[in-house]
Protein backbone atom coordinates (compact mmCIF):
# COMPACT_ATOMS: atom_id res chain seq x y z
CA UNK A 1 0.00 0.00 0.00
CA UNK A 2 2.72 2.45 0.98
CA UNK A 3 4.63 1.56 -2.16
CA UNK A 4 1.56 2.12 -4.28
CA UNK A 5 0.92 5.48 -2.67
CA UNK A 6 4.51 6.56 -3.22
CA UNK A 7 4.33 5.48 -6.85
CA UNK A 8 1.10 7.37 -7.40
CA UNK A 9 2.51 10.51 -5.78
CA UNK A 10 5.72 10.30 -7.79
CA UNK A 11 3.73 9.91 -10.99
CA UNK A 12 1.85 13.09 -10.12
CA UNK A 13 5.05 15.11 -10.35
CA UNK A 14 5.60 14.86 -14.13
CA UNK A 15 1.86 15.30 -14.53
CA UNK A 16 1.92 18.60 -12.63
CA UNK A 17 4.98 19.76 -14.56
CA UNK A 18 3.16 18.99 -17.80
CA UNK A 19 0.10 20.85 -16.60
CA UNK A 20 2.20 23.86 -15.63
CA UNK A 21 3.75 24.04 -19.12
CA UNK A 22 0.39 23.77 -20.85
CA UNK A 23 -1.31 26.27 -18.55
CA UNK A 24 1.54 28.75 -18.91
CA UNK A 25 1.51 28.46 -22.69
CA UNK A 26 -2.27 28.73 -22.96
CA UNK A 27 -2.38 31.85 -20.81
CA UNK A 28 0.30 33.49 -22.92
CA UNK A 29 -1.61 32.59 -26.07
CA UNK A 30 -4.83 34.28 -25.00
CA UNK A 31 -5.24 37.69 -26.56
CA UNK A 32 -5.06 40.70 -24.28
CA UNK A 33 -2.35 41.76 -21.89
CA UNK A 34 -2.00 42.67 -18.24
CA UNK A 35 -1.40 46.31 -18.98
CA UNK A 36 -4.36 46.65 -21.32
CA UNK A 37 -6.26 49.34 -19.48
CA UNK A 38 -8.23 50.20 -16.41
CA UNK A 39 -11.37 50.55 -18.47
CA UNK A 40 -12.90 52.27 -21.47
CA UNK A 41 -11.66 55.67 -22.49
CA UNK A 42 -8.36 57.11 -23.61
CA UNK A 43 -7.77 58.37 -20.09
CA UNK A 44 -7.39 54.88 -18.68
CA UNK A 45 -4.46 54.23 -20.98
CA UNK A 46 -0.94 54.40 -19.62
CA UNK A 47 1.52 56.50 -21.57
CA UNK A 48 4.01 54.64 -23.80
CA UNK A 49 6.91 55.30 -21.38
CA UNK A 50 4.87 54.03 -18.43
CA UNK A 51 3.97 50.83 -20.28
CA UNK A 52 7.65 50.38 -21.11
CA UNK A 53 8.58 50.77 -17.44
CA UNK A 54 5.93 48.32 -16.27
CA UNK A 55 6.87 45.72 -18.87
CA UNK A 56 10.45 46.04 -17.69
CA UNK A 57 9.54 45.81 -14.02
CA UNK A 58 7.54 42.62 -14.56
CA UNK A 59 9.92 41.02 -17.04
CA UNK A 60 7.14 40.79 -19.63
CA UNK A 61 9.59 41.27 -22.47
CA UNK A 62 11.75 38.25 -21.58
CA UNK A 63 11.51 35.30 -23.97
CA UNK A 64 8.68 32.96 -22.96
CA UNK A 65 10.90 30.01 -21.96
CA UNK A 66 12.85 32.36 -19.68
CA UNK A 67 9.61 33.65 -18.19
CA UNK A 68 8.45 30.09 -17.64
CA UNK A 69 11.66 28.98 -15.97
CA UNK A 70 11.71 32.05 -13.76
CA UNK A 71 8.18 31.37 -12.69
CA UNK A 72 8.57 27.59 -12.27
CA UNK A 73 11.82 28.04 -10.33
CA UNK A 74 10.07 30.50 -8.05
CA UNK A 75 7.17 28.10 -7.50
CA UNK A 76 9.55 25.47 -6.17
CA UNK A 77 11.18 27.85 -3.74
CA UNK A 78 7.88 29.21 -2.47
CA UNK A 79 7.98 32.47 -4.45
CA UNK A 80 4.93 32.35 -6.64
CA UNK A 81 5.53 35.76 -8.10
CA UNK A 82 3.81 39.10 -7.58
CA UNK A 83 0.34 40.08 -8.62
CA UNK A 84 0.56 42.51 -11.51
CA UNK A 85 -2.48 44.39 -10.23
CA UNK A 86 -1.98 44.60 -6.50
CA UNK A 87 1.78 44.21 -6.14
CA UNK A 88 1.25 41.61 -3.41
CA UNK A 89 2.97 38.22 -3.38
CA UNK A 90 0.71 35.67 -5.11
CA UNK A 91 0.85 33.26 -2.18
CA UNK A 92 -0.33 36.03 0.14
CA UNK A 93 -3.17 37.00 -2.23
CA UNK A 94 -4.32 33.39 -2.41
CA UNK A 95 -3.89 32.75 1.32
CA UNK A 96 -6.11 35.77 2.05
CA UNK A 97 -8.90 34.31 -0.03
CA UNK A 98 -8.50 30.62 0.79
CA UNK A 99 -10.38 30.44 4.14
CA UNK A 100 -13.66 31.67 2.63
CA UNK A 101 -13.46 29.20 -0.22
CA UNK A 102 -12.53 26.29 2.05
CA UNK A 103 -15.44 27.12 4.32
CA UNK A 104 -17.84 27.17 1.39
CA UNK A 105 -16.52 23.96 -0.15
CA UNK A 106 -16.41 22.15 3.19
CA UNK A 107 -19.96 23.05 4.11
CA UNK A 108 -21.30 22.37 0.63
CA UNK A 109 -19.56 18.98 0.58
CA UNK A 110 -20.89 17.89 3.97
CA UNK A 111 -24.39 19.09 3.15
CA UNK A 112 -24.36 17.38 -0.24
CA UNK A 113 -23.42 14.09 1.42
CA UNK A 114 -25.97 14.61 4.18
CA UNK A 115 -28.66 14.94 1.54
CA UNK A 116 -27.41 12.45 -1.04
CA UNK A 117 -26.75 9.44 1.19
CA UNK A 118 -30.12 9.11 2.96
CA UNK A 119 -32.16 10.19 -0.05
CA UNK A 120 -30.24 7.89 -2.40
CA UNK A 121 -30.57 4.90 -0.08
CA UNK A 122 -34.29 5.37 0.53
CA UNK A 123 -34.95 6.02 -3.16
CA UNK A 124 -33.16 2.78 -4.08
CA UNK A 125 -34.87 0.78 -1.35
CA UNK A 126 -38.25 1.98 -2.57
CA UNK A 127 -37.57 2.02 -6.27
CA UNK A 128 -40.57 3.26 -8.30
CA UNK A 129 -42.23 4.64 -5.19
CA UNK A 130 -43.53 8.21 -5.05
CA UNK A 131 -40.48 9.13 -2.96
CA UNK A 132 -38.17 7.74 -5.62
CA UNK A 133 -39.92 9.68 -8.38
CA UNK A 134 -39.82 12.92 -6.43
CA UNK A 135 -36.17 12.40 -5.49
CA UNK A 136 -35.27 11.55 -9.10
CA UNK A 137 -37.22 14.51 -10.41
CA UNK A 138 -35.61 16.91 -7.96
CA UNK A 139 -32.11 15.66 -8.59
CA UNK A 140 -32.52 16.03 -12.34
CA UNK A 141 -33.91 19.50 -11.78
CA UNK A 142 -30.95 20.31 -9.53
CA UNK A 143 -28.59 18.95 -12.14
CA UNK A 144 -30.17 21.02 -14.90
CA UNK A 145 -30.44 24.31 -13.00
CA UNK A 146 -27.70 26.76 -13.93
CA UNK A 147 -26.24 27.74 -10.58
CA UNK A 148 -25.95 31.46 -11.39
CA UNK A 149 -29.65 31.53 -12.18
CA UNK A 150 -30.50 29.58 -9.02
CA UNK A 151 -28.34 31.98 -7.00
CA UNK A 152 -30.04 35.03 -8.45
CA UNK A 153 -33.49 33.56 -7.83
CA UNK A 154 -32.63 32.83 -4.20
CA UNK A 155 -31.25 36.33 -3.84
CA UNK A 156 -34.31 37.84 -5.45
CA UNK A 157 -36.69 35.87 -3.27
CA UNK A 158 -35.03 35.74 0.14
CA UNK A 159 -33.07 39.00 0.14
CA UNK A 160 -34.79 41.42 -2.15
CA UNK A 161 -38.44 40.35 -1.84
CA UNK A 162 -38.79 38.80 1.59
CA UNK A 163 -35.80 40.46 3.20
CA UNK A 164 -35.03 37.38 5.31
CA UNK A 165 -31.41 36.84 4.37
CA UNK A 166 -28.53 39.27 3.72
CA UNK A 167 -27.50 39.55 0.07
CA UNK A 168 -23.76 39.79 0.43
CA UNK A 169 -20.68 39.13 2.48
CA UNK A 170 -20.00 36.94 5.48
CA UNK A 171 -21.01 39.18 8.33
CA UNK A 172 -23.33 42.01 9.29
CA UNK A 173 -21.47 45.24 8.59
CA UNK A 174 -23.89 47.48 10.45
CA UNK A 175 -23.55 45.89 13.89
CA UNK A 176 -21.08 43.62 15.59
CA UNK A 177 -22.54 40.49 17.09
CA UNK A 178 -21.08 38.29 19.79
CA UNK A 179 -21.51 34.73 20.97
CA UNK A 180 -24.48 32.82 19.58
CA UNK A 181 -25.68 35.93 17.78
CA UNK A 182 -22.44 36.02 15.82
CA UNK A 183 -22.83 32.36 14.88
CA UNK A 184 -26.41 32.94 13.74
CA UNK A 185 -25.26 36.00 11.76
CA UNK A 186 -22.64 33.84 10.02
CA UNK A 187 -25.17 31.11 9.28
CA UNK A 188 -27.63 33.60 7.80
CA UNK A 189 -24.92 34.83 5.46
CA UNK A 190 -23.90 31.32 4.43
CA UNK A 191 -27.29 29.71 3.77
CA UNK A 192 -27.76 30.88 0.19
CA UNK A 193 -24.18 30.57 -1.10
CA UNK A 194 -23.81 27.08 0.34
CA UNK A 195 -27.19 26.04 -1.07
CA UNK A 196 -26.17 27.23 -4.54
CA UNK A 197 -22.81 25.54 -4.35
CA UNK A 198 -24.21 22.28 -2.99
CA UNK A 199 -27.08 22.07 -5.47
CA UNK A 200 -25.39 20.28 -8.35
CA UNK A 201 -23.18 18.12 -6.15
CA UNK A 202 -26.06 17.00 -3.99
CA UNK A 203 -28.12 16.21 -7.09
CA UNK A 204 -25.44 14.18 -8.80
CA UNK A 205 -24.35 12.35 -5.65
CA UNK A 206 -27.96 11.36 -4.95
CA UNK A 207 -28.12 9.75 -8.37
CA UNK A 208 -24.87 7.90 -7.75
CA UNK A 209 -25.90 6.64 -4.32
CA UNK A 210 -29.22 5.45 -5.69
CA UNK A 211 -27.63 3.69 -8.67
CA UNK A 212 -24.95 2.04 -6.56
CA UNK A 213 -27.53 0.86 -4.03
CA UNK A 214 -29.80 -0.54 -6.71
CA UNK A 215 -26.95 -2.53 -8.14
CA UNK A 216 -25.94 -3.92 -4.77
CA UNK A 217 -29.49 -4.68 -3.63
CA UNK A 218 -29.82 -6.95 -6.66
CA UNK A 219 -26.79 -9.02 -5.72
CA UNK A 220 -26.97 -12.65 -4.57
CA UNK A 221 -25.38 -11.97 -1.19
CA UNK A 222 -28.07 -9.46 -0.34
CA UNK A 223 -30.72 -12.00 -1.26
CA UNK A 224 -28.85 -14.53 0.89
CA UNK A 225 -28.71 -12.10 3.78
CA UNK A 226 -32.41 -11.52 3.46
CA UNK A 227 -33.05 -15.25 3.09
CA UNK A 228 -31.16 -15.98 6.24
CA UNK A 229 -33.73 -13.94 8.09
CA UNK A 230 -31.68 -10.85 8.92
CA UNK A 231 -33.81 -7.80 9.60
CA UNK A 232 -34.11 -5.54 6.55
CA UNK A 233 -32.38 -2.75 8.40
CA UNK A 234 -29.28 -4.85 8.96
CA UNK A 235 -29.32 -6.06 5.38
CA UNK A 236 -29.40 -2.54 4.00
CA UNK A 237 -27.12 -0.81 6.44
CA UNK A 238 -24.50 -3.53 7.02
CA UNK A 239 -24.35 -5.45 3.80
CA UNK A 240 -25.65 -3.23 1.03
CA UNK A 241 -24.53 0.27 2.01
CA UNK A 242 -21.00 -0.80 2.76
CA UNK A 243 -20.54 -2.24 -0.70
CA UNK A 244 -22.39 0.53 -2.45
CA UNK A 245 -20.08 3.02 -0.76
CA UNK A 246 -17.10 1.96 -2.86
CA UNK A 247 -18.05 3.65 -6.17
CA UNK A 248 -19.71 6.52 -4.32
CA UNK A 249 -16.56 7.43 -2.42
CA UNK A 250 -14.65 7.88 -5.67
CA UNK A 251 -17.29 10.12 -7.13
CA UNK A 252 -17.66 12.08 -3.89
CA UNK A 253 -13.95 12.79 -3.56
CA UNK A 254 -13.77 13.92 -7.17
CA UNK A 255 -16.68 16.28 -6.48
CA UNK A 256 -14.34 18.44 -4.38
CA UNK A 257 -12.44 19.91 -7.33
CA UNK A 258 -15.78 20.47 -9.01
CA UNK A 259 -17.02 22.41 -5.99
CA UNK A 260 -13.83 24.43 -6.20
CA UNK A 261 -14.75 25.47 -9.74
CA UNK A 262 -18.31 26.27 -8.70
CA UNK A 263 -17.13 28.86 -6.18
CA UNK A 264 -16.40 31.33 -8.99
CA UNK A 265 -20.10 31.93 -9.59
CA UNK A 266 -21.26 31.66 -5.98
CA UNK A 267 -18.64 34.04 -4.66
CA UNK A 268 -19.40 36.61 -7.32
CA UNK A 269 -23.17 36.58 -6.79
CA UNK A 270 -22.95 36.75 -3.01
CA UNK A 271 -19.93 39.08 -2.82
CA UNK A 272 -17.74 36.64 -0.90
CA UNK A 273 -13.98 37.14 -0.84
CA UNK A 274 -12.85 33.75 -2.12
CA UNK A 275 -10.55 32.13 -4.65
CA UNK A 276 -13.21 31.59 -7.30
CA UNK A 277 -13.92 35.29 -7.65
CA UNK A 278 -10.23 36.06 -7.48
CA UNK A 279 -9.80 33.77 -10.47
CA UNK A 280 -12.48 35.53 -12.51
CA UNK A 281 -11.10 38.96 -11.66
CA UNK A 282 -7.54 37.94 -12.41
CA UNK A 283 -8.59 36.42 -15.73
CA UNK A 284 -10.42 39.60 -16.58
CA UNK A 285 -7.34 41.67 -15.84
CA UNK A 286 -4.86 39.18 -17.26
CA UNK A 287 -3.04 39.02 -13.93
CA UNK A 288 -0.93 36.06 -15.05
CA UNK A 289 0.96 35.29 -11.83
CA UNK A 290 -2.25 35.04 -9.79
CA UNK A 291 -4.02 33.04 -12.50
CA UNK A 292 -1.13 30.60 -12.68
CA UNK A 293 -1.09 30.25 -8.91
CA UNK A 294 -4.80 29.44 -8.73
CA UNK A 295 -4.64 27.08 -11.70
CA UNK A 296 -1.74 25.21 -10.14
CA UNK A 297 -3.62 24.88 -6.85
CA UNK A 298 -6.67 23.63 -8.73
CA UNK A 299 -4.56 21.12 -10.67
CA UNK A 300 -2.92 19.96 -7.49
CA UNK A 301 -6.36 19.51 -5.97
CA UNK A 302 -7.56 17.38 -8.89
CA UNK A 303 -4.43 15.24 -8.84
CA UNK A 304 -4.58 14.78 -5.08
CA UNK A 305 -8.30 14.02 -5.13
CA UNK A 306 -7.59 11.27 -7.64
CA UNK A 307 -4.88 9.79 -5.46
CA UNK A 308 -7.12 9.97 -2.38
CA UNK A 309 -10.00 8.35 -4.27
CA UNK A 310 -7.66 5.59 -5.39
CA UNK A 311 -6.39 4.94 -1.90
CA UNK A 312 -9.86 4.99 -0.35
CA UNK A 313 -11.00 2.58 -3.02
CA UNK A 314 -8.31 0.14 -2.05
CA UNK A 315 -9.02 0.55 1.65
CA UNK A 316 -12.74 -0.04 1.24
CA UNK A 317 -12.54 -2.93 -1.17
CA UNK A 318 -10.42 -5.77 0.18
CA UNK A 319 -10.46 -7.43 -3.27
CA UNK A 320 -8.28 -4.68 -4.61
CA UNK A 321 -4.73 -4.92 -3.45
CA UNK A 322 -1.81 -2.79 -4.44
CA UNK A 323 1.02 -5.03 -3.40
Amino acid sequence: MAAHLTRRLLLSVPLLVGISVVVFALLQATPGGPLASGGEGAGTQLSPEQIERMRDAYGLDDPLPVQYLNWAGGMLTGDWGTSLRTGQPVLEVIADRLPTTLLLIGLAFVISLAIAIPVGIVAARRQHSAFDYVATGLSFAGFATPSFWFGLMLLFLFSFTLGWLPSSGLEDLRETHTGLDALWDRVRHLIMPVAVLALVTAASLTRYVRAAMLEVLDQDYVRTARGSGLPERTVVMRHAVKNAAIPVVTVAVLAIPELFLGTAITETIFSLPGIGRLFIESADQRDYPVLLGILMIASLLVVLANVVADVLYALLDPRISHG
Partner: peptide, 12 residues
Amino acid sequence: LTKIFAGYQDGG
Protein backbone atom coordinates in the same frame (compact mmCIF):
# COMPACT_ATOMS: atom_id res chain seq x y z
CA LEU B 1 -12.46 44.95 -22.63
CA THR B 2 -8.97 43.49 -22.24
CA LYS B 3 -8.95 42.15 -25.77
CA ILE B 4 -10.10 45.42 -27.31
CA PHE B 5 -7.76 47.69 -25.36
CA ALA B 6 -4.70 45.42 -25.11
CA GLY B 7 -1.48 46.79 -26.56
CA TYR B 8 0.01 46.22 -29.99
CA GLN B 9 2.29 43.42 -28.80
CA ASP B 10 -0.50 41.70 -26.90
CA GLY B 11 -2.76 41.50 -29.94
CA GLY B 12 -5.20 44.23 -28.91
